[in-house]
């Protein structure tokens, strides 16, 4: 409707101008609604501990690294950060290794139950996590996977996998099958054709879905909190110490969670729609 036929130039009356102003202030307002809370958190994170407790709050960050330094030096934080990164990287690798072939199969082959499979993949998102986490905790204790990074990464992979499948599916669908067929006629076997023709074309998309998997694991709270005791991830650590820790520690931790996520989402923004646009049809 934005590009509706505008055959006759209309006179910009005061009414439409006012409407336009209203419209744009609405847009700006919505943007502020999203951005302002993050900005406020960053102000707190960039204040010294005493300033965080102080009142009233400034509107501009004082750029004091006191809180952040305290946060990084706090017992267990470094380990939690490291755990978070390890788990997220494992999740990333696992979900791409499992998800990308599934995405490729969905985009290239027609098999029975394809539609049902796709729906099923999406439906796993609808499965409540508390229900998943508890039995897994029990099983993990039996198998000896409890409180390990790989165990948690496996759970996070189940969360990230639907997205990995759907994103890689849409990415592989974007590469015409003719290109692959051309490579076969030129003497490549299936693997070579994939390696030399398809892979270079899909690499950015695969990277994006890998980053997305990383973000999902990085942000996940409930399963991390339930499944780890000693090897806490950053989210679990923050949750656990929430009641005991001073405010400035919480805010610095919050900022430590937010900033990487912001960067990641910015990196994958182009692909955000791939997973839903296809899944809806």
């Amino acid at each position: 409707m934005s590009t509706a036929v505008t055959d006759a130039p209309r006179i910009v009356s005061d009414v439409t101008r006012a409407g336009k102003l209203l419209y744009w202030s609405g847009v700006v307002l919505l943007c502020v609604w999203v951005l302002l809370p993050i900005y406020l958190l960053l102000i707190n994170a960039l204040s010294s501990p005493t300033e965080v407790q102080a009142f009233p709050k400034p509107a501009v960050p004082p750029f004091d690294l006191g809180s952040l330094r305290f946060f990084l030096g706090y017992a267990g934080v470094a380990q939690a950060l490291l755990n978070s990164i390890i788990v997220a990287v494992l999740t990333m690798v696992l979900s791409i290794l499992i998800g990308a072939p599934a995405g490729y199969a969905l985009s290239r082959f027609n098999f029975r139950g394809k539609g049902a499979f796709r729906l099923l993949v999406l439906m796993t998102r609808a499965f409540p996590l508390p229900l998943l986490a508890l039995p897994i905790a029990v099983v993990y204790i039996r198998v000896g996977l409890d409180d390990t990074q790989i165990g948690l990464a496996l759970v996070h992979t189940t969360l990230a996998l639907p997205f990995a499948v759907l994103i890689t599916f849409s990415i592989f669908s974007g590469v015409p099958a003719e290109l692959e067929e051309a490579a076969w006629t030129l003497g490549c076997n299936r693997l070579q054709a994939f390696w030399k023709v398809v892979l270079p074309l899909v690499l950015p998309g695969i990277t994006a879905s890998a980053i997305f998997a990383f973000t999902i694991s990085w942000n996940e709270v409930f399963a991390s909190a339930v499944l780890t005791v000693q090897n806490r991830t950053l989210t679990a650590f923050l949750l656990q110490t929430l009641n005991l820790s001073p405010l400035y520690l919480r805010y610095a931790g919050g900022a430590a969670l937010v900033v990487p996520a912001l960067i990641f989402i910015f990196a994958v923004r182009k692909y955000l729609f791939a997973m839903w646009g296809i899944a809806n049809r």
Partner: peptide, 9 residues
């Protein structure tokens, strides 16, 4: 943006 943020954050 909020899509990429943890609920804890």
């Amino acid at each position: 943006i909020p899509l990429g943020l943890s609920d804890l954050a």
